[in-house]
């Protein structure tokens, strides 16, 4: 079989991504946001294999880049300088379609001693900011976007990818000690985007599963007083289902995985306005678990 197209392979833990692109800026950006991954070009199995190809240089409103997957273009093109956000967003979407061997929650995941804290939330609730801040506070970073749960064992698999910070979160995280951010992409429709780079140890541990210990549903609101409320298991299951990509599609498998997850963990709802207060509260609660 002839494999003419050269692919760059990124092993992010629960999945392997392969991409092909002639756009040099994209590869430079990837070097910055995946600094701890070996740059391999092996031709093994990839869960997602995409090409990011430049559009016509003659387009009046600026050159664009398209993501091609299996000969099709599933998304609208991006401006060419935003090839990295397109790759990150597009490959995550494709993964959400293909990783239905697992229960996929829309959640950040961090861990202490391989015991995982899962932070499921809808967009705009401060999940990414909190996940990044916890990583900077010494927690292992497993994922910002997906909690990948193996229904057979109940374990969570890491998917260590750069976390897209938006607008004010960029400065909030960027100002913290040891924070590493990728390039700034100004003026996407959601505003400015820059990616937080998870630390080296988290990246190296990307194949080490963790056991879920706690679930916390975070909600950031500027100026809000810290309020942390325990949730009973039944409420937690319902809210896990609502924050899942594929809970319905998995049918009984998804239901049992969510029930097991709620049984094995303690769940809280965390309403906060100050990041450090939230982290202190999380540390205390997590340490108090039996």
């Amino acid at each position: 079989m002839i494999e003419a197209t050269p692919y760059r392979v990124l092993d992010v833990g629960a999945a392997k991504l392969a991409l092909h692109s002639p756009i040099e800026r994209l590869h430079a950006d990837l070097d910055r946001v995946y600094p701890h991954l070996p740059g391999t070009t092996d031709s093994g199995f990839a869960d997602v294999r995409v090409s990011l190809l430049p559009g016509s240089p003659l387009r009046l409103r600026g050159r664009q880049v398209s993501l091609w997957s299996e000969g099709e273009r599933p998304f609208e093109p991006y401006p060419i300088h935003s090839a990295l956000p397109l790759f990150e967003w597009g490959s995550n979407y494709l993964l959400s379609q293909r990783l239905n061997a697992y229960l996929l929650l829309h959640a950040g995941v961090v861990a202490r001693d391989d015991l995982a804290l899962i932070l499921p939330a809808s967009p705009g609730s401060g999940k990414t900011t909190l996940t990044c801040a916890l990583n900077l506070a010494g927690w292992r970073f497993l994922s910002d976007e997906f909690a990948v749960i193996d229904p057979d064992t109940g374990e969570v698999l890491p998917m260590v990818r750069p976390a897209p910070l938006k607008n004010r979160s960029i400065a909030v995280i960027g100002e913290r000690d040891a924070a590493v951010l990728g390039p700034l992409y100004p003026g996407t429709r959601k505003g400015d985007v820059a990616h937080f780079v998870p630390d080296r140890d988290s990246t190296l541990a990307r194949h080490r599963r963790a056991r879920p210990r706690a679930v916390m549903f975070p909600r950031f609101e500027a100026g809000a007083r810290l309020h942390c409320k325990p949730l009973d298991s039944a409420t937690a299951v319902m809210r896990l289902g609502l924050n899942s990509f594929n809970y319905r599609a998995l049918g009984p498998v998804g239901f049992h995985a969510a029930v097991e997850l709620a049984r094995r963990t303690k769940a809280w709802e965390l309403h906060y306005g100050d990041l450090d207060e939230a982290i202190a509260c999380i540390e205390t609660l997590f340490a108090s678990l039996p």
Binding site: E76, S82, E88, W89, P123, T188, R189
Partner: peptide
């Protein structure tokens, strides 16, 4: 006016 989808949105 074709707009690109959001970066970062699920």
């Amino acid at each position: 006016k074709k707009e690109a989808p959001d970066a970062g949105a699920p």
